[in-house]
Design a protein around this nucleic acid. Structure first.
Lengths: 147, 147
DNA sequence: ATCCTAATTCGGAATGATTCCGATTTATGG
DNA sequence: CCATAAATCGGAATCATTCCGAATTAGGAT
C-alpha cells in the first residue's frame, strides 16, 4: 500500500492533506516499525524545521482514528506508533532496540481459558519483547520484517 | 503471607524497616491489586502526612528488586504496582476501573508458534483488560466479549 | 485566479508521572 | 548511646504528552 491510498482515505474524511501529514505517513510507511514521537520529530525536522510535537501527536491521533496507525504503550511508559497491519492478527515480536515487529502466528484468545463471571472484556495485549537478529549482530541472515 | 515475612526478607538484605516501608507493604498486601503511585500517596498520607513521591517510588523499586512487588505499564502510560503473585503464571484479567486482577489459567507461550530466526526473547506480556463484575454493578452473568 | 472558512499549524505554556538532589533524619548493629 | 549507612523530605528537574490562542493554509466555491 502506498502513501496515496492513505491520502485518499483522509481526503474522503474532509481532512486536509498538509505537508506535515504527508511526511508523517511517508516516514511511517517507509520504516514499517514502531517509532516514538521523538524519532518522528527528528526525522520530520529535516523537511519541516518548525514542526511541533502538537502537530505530530495530533496527526497520530487522527491517523489512529482512521485506523491507519496503531499505537502501543511500551514498557518505558511512552507510546510507539506504526502503520497498522492489514492482517487481522494483532500480536508481535517486538525488538526493543529498533522497534521492528514480526507477527506472531497465533493469538492467545484462542486458548480455552474461562472468563471470570461478570467480567466484561474490552481488549487484550500480547507482545513478545526481545532483540532481533540484526540488532544482536547475529551472522545469520535476518528475517524480513513485515507487518 | 503476612507483612512480617516480607519485612524479614528485607531485613536480611540490610534494608531498614522504616514506617513508610511498612505502610507501603501493608497497603499493597491489604489491597492485593494493581495500584498507582498516586493511589498509594493518598493512602500513605493518612499515616505519613509528609511522605514524598520519591519515597514511594524508591521503595517500590526496592520491593521490585526484592521480587516482592510487580510493576505493569498500563495503557495510560503510568505504572501500577501490586504484591507479586506467588503462582508461576504472570497473566491477568485486569479491571481498568479498580485495578483488581484475576489470574488467567494459561499462558500464550504454551502456544506452538515459531520464533523468528535469530530473535532473542527477553520477556512477554499478556493482559486482558476490561471491567470486573463489581465495577459493572452486575448481578447477572456478563455478556460475551470478543477480542 | 481569488475568496472563504474550517482545518491545521506553531510556539510556548501547562500537565502529570517519575526521577534527581542536597540537606536532614533515622534504623540498627555494636 | 554512637556511628554511619540507609532512608526521608521538599522541591526542583525531566520527559512525554496535551492544551491554548493566534496565525496560517488547503481545498471547495465563486
Amino acid at each position: 500500500m502506498d502513501v496515496d491510498a492513505y491520502l485518499n482515505q483522509l481526503k474522503g474524511q474532509g481532512l486536509k492533506l498538509t505537508g506535515q501529514r504527508r511526511s508523517i505517513l511517508g516516514i511511517l510507511l517507509a520504516e514499517n516499525r514502531y517509532m516514538s514521537a521523538k524519532e518522528l520529530m527528528d526525522r520530520l525536522q529535516e523537511e519541516h524545521p518548525h514542526i511541533s510535537y502538537d502537530t505530530i501527536y495530533r496527526n497520530l491521533k487522527v491517523l489512529r482514528q482512521e485506523r491507519i496507525v496503531e499505537e502501543s504503550m511500551f514498557q518505558d511508559g511512552s507510546s510507539r506508533f506504526r502503520i497498522r497491519c492489514r492482517d487481522p492478527h494483532h500480536h508481535h515480536f517486538i525488538c526493543v532496540q529498533c522497534g521492528r515487529t514480526i507477527p506472531i502466528e497465533s493469538c492467545p484468545m484462542e486458548l480455552p481459558f474461562p472468563v471470570p463471571d461478570g467480567f466484561q472484556v474490552y481488549s487484550h495485549r500480547f507482545d513478545i519483547f526481545g532483540e532481533c537478529a540484526d540488532c544482536r549482530g547475529v551472522t545469520k541472515p535476518a528475517p524480513v520484517s513485515s507487518n
